[in-house]
């Protein structure tokens, strides 16, 4: 069970206090988009064995959504960042590069 740090309320808590929300940074196209674009938005998700940027919600805590960069196999957490950030902060990208370069 993951130990997760909530960047909104600052609590470090058990995974059971949180709810996973799937892949992060998915663009929601407008109603004028093509069927293919809409299908991509609805259904196409990454499923990497490796680094994954994902959404989490502190469901049984402060209720806030946030982002987490996590390795799906080793379960290493590279960092958490706010839900309104459209890309991971540079510090997290640096951490990912450092930890996955070996």
């Amino acid at each position: 069970m993951l130990l997760i740090h909530c960047p909104c309320c600052g609590v470090e808590a058990e995974e059971t206090e949180f709810a996973a929300g799937g892949e992060a940074h998915i663009h929601r196209p407008g109603p004028d988009c093509s069927d293919a674009e809409w299908a991509t938005y609805l259904f196409d998700r990454k499923n990497p064995r490796g680094v994954h940027l994902e959404r989490w919600r502190h469901a049984f805590g402060c209720g806030k959504w946030f982002h987490m960069a996590r390795h799906t196999y080793t379960l290493e957490v590279y960092g958490v960042y706010q839900a309104d950030e459209l890309t991971p902060p540079q510090a997290i990208l640096d951490r990912i590069a450092e930890r996955t370069s070996a």
């Binding site: 929300g21 959404r55 469901a59 209720g63 959504w65």
Partner: peptide, 13 residues
């Protein structure tokens, strides 16, 4: 309620 919050926090913040 969670559904509304999800959209407010993650899409239309």
């Amino acid at each position: 309620h969670a559904w509304m919050e999800e959209w407010l926090q993650t899409e239309w913040f």
